[in-house]
């Protein structure tokens, strides 16, 4: 059966798959993880702020995002963003937003909800004496967060944050609904063009598997190292 496979298709498509597809996938993953972490941390701080209204708004946002399938959010957002942009800027026609920008914003918004829950757990894991000691030294709330609480919360949660980023790496393949050539999209295009669906999808699965496995192994090593330092 393997005899009828043409693995040379893969070899010929490699430059396109990795230089275009994987580059897009990795760029989206890294930027979305970074943006998601920044906004997620802000949302976590809002939820823990003690201001009821801020906390409620952040809580509703997180629950809302976590109750929707990601693929729907990507899909809807892509079609809605031009109109939201028009409404925000007061332009006369829907603004044009590229597929990359649209998917990046979507992933940042979506991941922020998940990262915020991780950072919230991280902040709550710091004993209350730490912010008290920082306050007693005269640090303001924002200095206490920036220099004392968040660095520790981030460090404690680093393995979980990275694991979530690996999930994000896999989830970026959902941008196929916008027919963007990310890694999976590129593989899919070649597969359709050359009629080699089985080979290309097998190869794509293998690549996702290997990258995720290696990354997970790295996270486990890191976790062990952090555990010793503490």
């Amino acid at each position: 059966m393997l005899g009828s496979f043409d693995f040379d298709v893969i070899r010929r498509a490699l430059p396109y798959l990795f230089l275009e597809g994987m580059r897009f996938t990795l760029t989206l993953t890294v930027l979305a993880a970074f943006g998601g972490l920044v906004f997620g941390t802000l949302i976590a701080l809002m939820r823990l702020s003690g201001y009821r209204l801020l906390g409620r708004v952040a809580g509703i946002y997180v629950d809302f995002m976590r109750s929707l399938p990601l693929v729907l959010v990507i899909f809807w957002f892509y079609f809605l963003v031009p109109y939201i942009g028009q409404w925000l800027t007061g332009a006369s026609r829907p603004i044009t937003v590229g597929a990359f920008a649209s998917s990046l914003i979507t992933f940042i918004m979506f991941e922020a909800a998940y990262f915020s829950e991780i950072m919230r757990a991280g902040i709550q894991s710091i004993s209350r004496g730490q912010p008290a000691a920082a306050s007693a030294l005269g640090l303001t709330y924002s200095q206490t967060m920036r220099y004392v609480v968040l660095p520790q919360a981030f460090r404690n949660m680093l393995p979980v944050l990275l694991t979530q980023t690996i999930v994000l790496f896999q989830d970026t393949s959902l941008v196929y609904v916008l027919s963007i050539p990310d890694f999976l999209g590129a593989a899919s295009k070649v597969a359709q063009r050359d009629g080699r669906l089985v080979e290309m999808y097998l190869f794509a699965a293998l690549v996702y598997f290997v990258i995720s496995c290696v990354a997970s192994y790295g996270v486990r090593r890191l976790q062990a190292r952090i555990a010793i330092v503490r």
């Binding site: 004993s127 004496g129 730490q130 008290a132 000691a133 920082a134 306050s135 007693a136 030294l137 005269g138 640090l139 303001t140 220099y147 004392v148 660095p151 520790q152 460090r155 503490r230």
Partner: peptide, 21 residues
């Protein structure tokens, strides 16, 4: 201005509360 006031009074805690990082 509480941060300013607190910066003028030293405090030592039962559990030390050094910043571990």
């Amino acid at each position: 201005d509480l941060p300013k006031l607190r910066s003028r009074v030293g405090m030592v805690f039962q559990h030390f509360e050094l910043f571990p990082h």
